[in-house]
Every structure is written in C-alpha cells, then in structure tokens.
Design a protein around this nucleic acid. Structure first.
Lengths: 205, 205
DNA sequence: CGCGGCATCGCCCATTTGGCTGATTCCTGG
DNA sequence: CCAGGAATCAGCCAAATGGGCGATGCCGCG
C-alpha cells in the first residue's frame, strides 16, 4: 500500500484529490496539509511514500521551498508537484528542488493516480504539456538577471516610468535606462511592455 | 432535497465539491459538467435547484456567459459562482448576469454548503472578502471597455507595439492610438505599462 | 595585482508613445 | 428620424523611450 500526503491550501481540492486517490485500493491518503510548514511537520511524522503538493500555497512558503524541505527528510518522500498554471521558471525550480515530477491540475484522475504510482516507484513524472517545455528550458536556460535588474523589472511591471523608478531607487534616470537596456538584451526584447510580458511568462517575476 | 449541478473544468475540483456537498444529507449532486456548454444542456434536462459554476472554464465559454444562459432557462436555477481569485473584475459581471452570489474556492466546505442552501432559498451569497469590493465596485463601477478595446488591450499586454497591433487588426496606427487613448482614459492611466498593470490587477484581461 | 562583472552616471539621437483636436461612417435605441 | 456611442482615420507636437557609446568606482576571484 502506497501512502500519500496531500498539500493544498484549498480544502475542496484536498477533498477531491482524496476522493480520486482512494477510489482505487492501492493508494491511501495518510494526511492533509494546508500549508508548506504543516506539510513538512506532518511528513516528518507520517513518512508518506509520496507527497502531492500544490505549487502555490497561499500565504506561507511555496511549493518549491516545501519540496526542498521535504527532500531533506529521512526517509525522503517522492514529491509530486501539482499546479494549475504552467510557468516555466517554476517547473524548472521544482525539478531542481528534487521534485519527482509535475502534473497539471486539470488532468483526469487516473493520470494523477498513475503519476503517484510512478513517483513512488522512483520514476520521473512530467505532464506531456510540460515535458517539451522543460527540455527546451534545459537547452536554453533562463537569462540570469542581477538582483538590481529584478528590482527594476518589478517596478516596470507595476507600470512605473523611468523617472518614477529612478526616484524610488534613489538613482538617476540614466542608471535606470542602463539597467533596462541590460534587461532588454537578456530577455531579447526591445520594449518595456514585452519585457513585462516575457518576465511574467517565464515566471521571472 | 436540494439538487446541485457542478460546473468546473477540473475533474479533481468536481470530485472535491461532490464530496463536501454530499457529506451532509440535505444536498444532492445531480450532475457534473466540465464546460459551460455542457452545463447549459445538463441544466435544461436536470432542472437543478442550484448550479455551482467556476468562473473560469478553460477553453469554452466563461462562467458569466454560462450564467446568462442558465438564468434564461425555465425554471431558472440559482447560479452560485466559484472563483479562485478575489481580484476578479468578472465577479461584478457575474452578479449583473444574474448570479445569486459567489464564493472563493479556498473557503471551508461548510461555507460552500451554507452558500448553496442560501442560494436555493433565494438569498444573495457573497464571500466576505469580496463583499466590500463589490460594494466599492458598485460605487465606482469598473470602466466599461468595448470589445475592440479589450482586444487592443490583450495585444498590449502581450507587448505589442502600436504598429504591430495595427497590422494584426488590419487598421491604421491612428486607430490603434485612438483606442489606446480611450483605454487610458477609462483606466485612468497614462502609459501602456500601467494600463497593462491595472488591467491585470482588476482581472479585465 | 589585474580582470571582469556590477552599479552608477552622462550625452546624443531616432523612434515611439501619449495628448489634443477634429473628421467620417455605421449602427442602435429612443 | 435623430442623438449618441463605436470604430475608423488624420495631423501636430511634446514627452518618454530605446540604442549606442563611453566613463567611473567598487568588489571578488584567480
């Protein structure tokens, strides 16, 4: 019997997962957690074979940090990430963090059940919609922006003008333009709107 | 016995809702639909007392259009909207479309059950997190953008330049600028970046 | 120490954007 | 039928943006 721990901030989703998982008789849900913190504590006590973890967990730590902590346990459970959205950066982050795989929430129940079995067996589980994306991400890794550039990017995404960003960061407009020029080069774009778009698409911000 | 029809594009969420709804014995789920179209057909046959409908339904028609169609049925079911995000401008549209109310997906199961009972009784059901927002929205109603303006806004959010938008929509740049000027006025902004930001914040796109 | 990356700033110039005014056509609701 | 909103286009002008080039100071690393 494979044991599963559910981690999702939505009670309804937990109920649904429990229902589809326990529909067969080879899997049993040994616990539920609403937050990453809770999940880590529970996993330490319950030693589940597989942790099914939402990527976004409301206010607390996110799925990736939770994964890191879970994989540090002994024995370490296989961590299967669930999410609604397919953001590149987070997929890669989850894999790097030691997740056994990645499933989209809108798949059929049996896919989830199969995924849990394969994760328990030590296999890698990737939603087909994401597999190619992940591989592509491996080939052309995301551009590495500096902390300062990320900071500028955030202000950009909030719709700030160069002047406003400069005031906020206590630098001159020239500096902001310089950062922007670097950002544009790294993201391979030529306008702030497109920079915002790419940054959001890839999960950079 | 109050009958309920579930509408959500995620099988897992439907299972979860079914589980929490049928935990008591005053409610029964008479059907499930994965799309708005399916929901309308099923509701016509099943005549549920309440339809529990996700605001976002993947590829097909959205929750609002579904609500409009459902309310046109005879007898018309009470429509209770479920949503994950509280920043949805669409909740206002849902109310206008005749929804009996809306709930956030991350509430406790009993709140959902209570909401269904109250909707079936003809009451208005508002998640407290959203009630104030709705009232605020009533006082200063969200800007009403035309279909064309929304279309331009979407291209804008993808980072397109005026020239690109013009080419895509088969109009001149002057027209695009005209649309943008209207959008800016309605959103009370003065730059494309900020227009994108408020549009995303308010769930306009 | 010297090299490179980072953050900071300056200047110049072409392009894009945004604000303003005004015009035409079409369609819809009273 | 007429008023009004919507979509289409035009021209003008100021401001913001983006690109290119260079410069300085700082810091970590081999």
């Amino acid at each position: 019997m494979t044991t599963v721990l559910l981690v999702d901030d939505h009670p309804v989703v937990r109920s649904g997962l429990r229902a589809v998982i326990e529909a067969g008789d080879a899997l049993t849900v040994v616990g539920e957690a609403a937050t990453g913190e809770e999940a880590i504590v529970l996993a330490g006590h319950l030693h589940p074979d597989v942790v099914l973890c939402d990527l976004r967990l409301g206010s607390g730590i996110d799925g990736i940090r939770t994964t890191v902590a879970l994989r540090a346990l002994d024995p370490a459970p296989a961590v299967l990430i669930l999410t609604t959205f397919d953001r590149d950066a987070e997929v890669l982050g989850a894999i790097e963090a030691g997740a056994a795989g990645y499933l989209l929430k809108d798949v059929d129940p049996e896919v989830i059940v199969q995924g849990i079995h394969r994760a328990a067996a030590g296999d890698m589980v990737l939603a087909p919609e994401l597999a190619t994306r992940v591989l592509k991400g491996m080939r052309s890794p995301l551009p590495r922006l500096t902390d300062r550039e990320i900071e500028v990017l955030r202000h950009l995404a909030r719709g700030a003008t160069n002047k406003e960003i400069a005031r906020t960061l206590f630098v001159t407009e020239a500096t902001v333009k310089s950062h922007l020029a670097h950002i544009f080069t790294k993201l391979d774009v030529d306008s702030r709107s497109r920079a915002i778009h790419v940054a959001q698409e890839t999960g950079l911000i």
